[in-house]
Design a binder for these strands. Structure first.
Length: 552
RNA sequence: GCGCCCGUAGCUCAACGGAUAGAGCAACCGGUUUCUACCCGGUCGGUUGGGGGUUCGAGUCCCUCCGGGCGCGCCA
């Protein structure tokens, strides 16, 4: 019996009692089922009587007693009692709990997936760096978290599309092109230009392929270098992100937004809604109608479109493409954008609480040799995603970036990430998977065909077996809450607790027969439990985009 | 000045409004005759920055103060 099934059972008891007139009051939408920290209190507990007591107009313990009496008769439930202020503690029958192992194995890769967000269409936009340099540490958190968030949303039944907005328009592109061009001529990088070895590399590659660029008239040459460098740099970003297992369904060019007429369409939409006005020769959007602290300029007095104009058009374009919700992942240095992005949605006639969600993440720092690594794009001392991956590997990098809530600052300790200790929890979790895999391998070597023989779920009565089963049962709720709260870090945190539950089980519960012993029913039951554990570890790691190794 | 985020064990950090706030690391003490010891158990460690409030119940929600980070362009 899963917590979800138990919740339904509790709800059923309350509904029945109400139908009989034994109980009144408002039943909450969600019947909370929790795992008591103290095992003496049972396998599960629910505070439903506490929440019900007020509207029922009766003492919580009395309400609890009524529900408990009914619940005790339900199938699969061994023991029910009322404790404390009115908690109902529940102990499951061993077979009802043990049956979960086969449920997990049969569900396979789908176990943990649900339909909480079915019908929703999300556009998840993250990184969206200028194509003027490599993906660096500042983008890396979003690469991992955005990708994991997309996976978690999809696992909850939503339709999800990941998107990278390429800021390929504007003065930064010209500065980039000018920098590469200058270096190609052997000169210094201009003021406000881009520095770093990658500029030299780009220049060399472009000159090697197109020596004729150097003889073009200055203006044409700048365009030629800019476009060639853009193309190479974008390809490099795409390649590195794929290496990082962060896939984007769409790479959306800001230029294309302008070329396709999306800007005009977006502007027209805003005008229709009546939030555009002219002042001092400029065109404005009245975002203050919807909580922004000042109105924003769309078209400058000199006729140039602002970056904000692109943003609004881009939002409207996403809506036109059918997304019900646009999620933006932004760094803390962009938190000032939240209100204006929400206001844009409202100005376009949408419900800003549904159509726009902004996740603000604190910036990432890095430690090496016990010292903070100072990063500066200008000085060319930034750490790139590629370098990070070379130093610690994709698995460790992704996992450690996903494992923290985005609103808490994060410091990556590079020395620690390469160590195989519990400070680097990805190894702890992966090791658990490798350990289970090893047991399954040995079972196969012994010729035990656990799968076709089935098992008796009532045999899984050891305390550690129960703990492991309950940990496995938790997974679907973890995935659902990670998706609903947009907090993918819940998945790795859960995996660590599952790994602990498995190690504790393994420590005291012998899975395979020793030596010449025959295969007993308990061995089969434990093999099913192992198979289920392996599946959940693999499913959870997959949501993180981290590999689940069979050997380590 | 205004706005957003953060403040939890010596350190790094957890904790859908639920019972006695938890892990890892560090420190100390233990555990394996055979499935991966990269593991497991134990000890030590807290006024959840301070103060008020909301309620059956607050680390969590509201107010206020203190401390830290970031942002407040007809820039991109």
């Amino acid at each position: 019996m899963t917590p979800e099934e138990l919740a339904a059972e509790v709800r059923g008891c309350v509904v029945t009692l109400q139908a009989e007139g034994a109980l009144t009051g408002e039943l909450p939408d969600d019947v909370v089922i929790e795992r008591p920290k103290n095992r003496d209190r049972g396998d599960y507990a629910t505070p439903v009587a506490l929440t019900l007591a007020k509207s029922a107009g009766r003492p919580p313990r009395e309400v609890a007693a009524l529900i408990a009496g009914r619940l005790a008769e339900a199938e699969g439930i061994d023991e029910v009692d009322v404790a404390g202020p009115g908690f109902i503690n529940i102990r499951l029958a061993a077979d009802a709990q043990g049956a979960l192992a086969s449920q997990v194995v049969e569900a396979g890769a789908d176990y943990g997936h649900g339909s909480l967000l079915a019908g929703r269409r999300f556009n998840v936009e993250f990184i969206s760096a200028n194509p003027t340099g490599p993906i660096h540490l500042g983008h890396t958190r979003w690469a991992a978290v955005g990708d994991a968030l997309a996976r978690v949303l999809a696992a909850s039944g939503a339709e999800v599309s990941t998107e990278f907005y390429i800021n390929d328009r504007g003065v930064q592109m010209d500065r980039f092109g000018a920098s590469v061009m200058a270096v190609a001529h052997g000169g210094p990088v201009p003021e406000d230009g881009y520095h770093g070895a990658y500029i030299t590399d780009l220049a060399a590659r472009i000159v090697a392929e197109h020596p004729e660029f150097l003889t073009l008239p200055a203006e044409e040459e700048l365009v030629a270098f800019r476009e060639a460098a853009y193309s190479l740099q974008l390809a490099e970003q795409q390649q590195v992100l794929e290496l990082f297992r962060t896939h984007f369904d769409t790479w959306y060019s800001e230029r294309s937004l302008h070329e396709s007429g999306a800007v005009e369409r977006g502007m027209a939409r805003l005008r229709e809604q009546g939030h555009v006005f002219e002042l001092d020769g400029a065109t404005w959007l009245r975002t203050t109608d919807f909580g922004d602290d000042k109105d924003r300029v769309l078209v400058k007095a000199d006729g140039e479109l602002t970056y904000f104009a692109s943003d609004t058009a881009y939002y409207v374009d996403k809506r036109t493409r059918g997304f019900t919700t646009s999620i933006y992942l932004l760094g803390a240095d962009h938190h000032g954008y939240v209100n204006r992005l929400r206001a844009v949605a409202a100005c376009a006639g949408d419900d800003m609480d549904v159509s726009v969600e902004v996740l603000i993440g604190q910036l990432v720092k890095m430690m090496r040799d016990g010292q903070e690594v100072k990063l500066s794009k200008r000085a060319g001392t930034l750490i790139t995603l590629e370098e990070l991956v070379e130093e610690v590997g994709v698995d460790a990098a992704r996992y450690s970036l996903i494992r923290y809530p985005v609103d808490s600052p994060l410091t990556l300790d590079l020395d620690l990430l390469v160590q195989r200790t519990n400070d680097n929890p990805v190894f702890y979790v992966q090791y658990a998977h490798a350990r289970v895999s090893s047991v399954m391998r040995n079972a196969a070597d012994l010729g035990i065909d656990w799968r076709s023989q089935g098992y008796d779920p009532a045999l899984l009565v050891h305390e550690r077996e129960g703990e492991l089963l309950r940990a496995l049962a938790e997974f679907p709720a973890v995935v659902a809450s990670a998706a609903e709260l947009r907090e993918p870090h819940r998945v790795p945190r859960y995996l660590e607790s599952l790994a602990t539950a498995y190690h504790r089980f393994y420590d005291v519960c012998r899975v395979l027969p020793r030596g010449d012993e025959p295969t007993e029913p308990i061995h089969l039951a434990r093999l099913w439990l192992c198979a289920a554990t392996r599946q959940v570890l693999a499913n959870g790691l997959a949501l993180c985009g981290v590999t689940a190794p069979d050997r380590m």
